[in-house]
Design a binder for these strands. Structure first.
Lengths: 205, 205
DNA sequence: TTGACAAGATACCGCTTGGTCGGTATCTTT
DNA sequence: AAAGATACCGACCAAGCGGTATCTTGTCAA
């Protein structure tokens, strides 16, 4: 016989979304493997029963965080701006300028959630890897397409290989975040992105 | 009363070094937090008592791996080649060419031990962060010095800022490894490094 | 109004984890 | 040879982990 501390009103979608948010934060702070379900529950005042009602395993929760939290977040912050104009280099410069301007301690502290999970999980779990890879490929594709369009519009040098350069730029971005994170220095992060800006500039026709 | 399975001959240095090697591998495969002491012991046939004789805590073992295994390894593979010649860009191209040529599944599978630990540990443990930062700073410094020397010798464009560019190159390298790791694709890794080569080439006077 | 099911609660479980501790064997010193 | 320090052994421990079982309660269609 148990007395239950019942939530007044039910709201399964809210519960699910609360769990995803808390899990996202916990994973960002501790990594996936070290993420504690107990801690996630404590931060949501959701019960373990509710958690396992919505997600079959910790793994499922982690995969859902990738698909439903991280992917949309990156899409909004990095992909979307490209589709707005016909000069991809200008778009990219604007994005980078924005990142440099708004860089603060929170970005530098925990780094890029995508990159964090890549380094930790991609050798350990094939499904995690594929989820992350999907985001990465979309990112590269969006950028490559924009670069190719830019070539048509004579804004981008004809000798650049769009896919290759897009891949490199994504790599450089992740690298910059990573270095800034370890230096715990907003300034180092900004200096690194500035060099990337110079590189992007050199791609102009 | 316990009967002990004694090692015929004592060899503390060997034991310590065995532990460091096994810990390095375990950390590379699982990350630091998920690294299991039991598994390390199983791979070394060293007893738990011996481990805790040489290292006070798991943390000490991890820090020792950074200082005594990862740091020298990176120094040998990435720093040393710079001091050999007076044309830093040529040195760098040679290093990158070598990396592209010898890229194999093992590099792509587990990525860069330095980068892995950065993403996982730098927000969680200040001493880990400092140990990793020391390696990073040395790397950047070696490269920056080489670039500055290259400017003196008129081999490097006068308008490049050595420290900034060195930082960016290190970031780009880590980024390339990271992307290759998640793509599980030697080819993606190579393509990414090729773009870095083109960038390095553009620095020539 | 009621039956069926979704949603949520909580006590509990087996297992692994990093770490401890009393003890023993070997090596060095005197 | 005695003694003291160093190296090593392995049983044990508390805590935290992800996961399960069993229960109650809210919701809504029939």
């Amino acid at each position: 016989m148990t007395t239950q501390a019942i939530r007044k009103t039910r709201n399964p979608e809210q519960t699910r979304s609360d769990l995803l948010d808390a899990a996202y934060t916990e994973i960002l702070e501790s990594g996936y493997q070290a993420a504690s379900l107990e801690r996630i529950l404590a931060n949501t005042s959701v019960s373990k029963g509710a958690l396992y009602h919505h997600f079959g395993t910790k793994r499922e929760l982690g995969l859902a965080v990738i698909k439903e939290v991280i992917a949309p977040q990156l899409a909004a912050r990095w992909f979307a701006p490209f589709t707005e104009h016909d000069d991809p280099l200008a778009s990219l410069q604007r994005i980078l300028e924005e990142k440099i301007r708004t860089a603060d301690e929170s970005v530098i502290r925990y780094g890029c959630p995508l990159n964090n999970l890549i380094q930790e999980m991609s050798p350990l779990d094939e499904e995690f890897r594929r989820g992350l890879q999907q985001i990465l490929e979309l990112w590269v594709e969006v950028m490559a397409t924009a670069l190719a369009d830019g070539q048509q519009a004579q804004k981008v040098r004809a000798d650049v290989a769009p896919k290759e350069v897009a891949l490199f730029i994504v790599a450089a971005i992740e690298g910059c975040v990573g270095l800034g994170k370890n230096a715990q220095s907003v300034e180092a992060y900004q200096r690194c992105l500035r060099q990337l800006q110079l590189y992007v500039q050199s791609l102009a026709a």
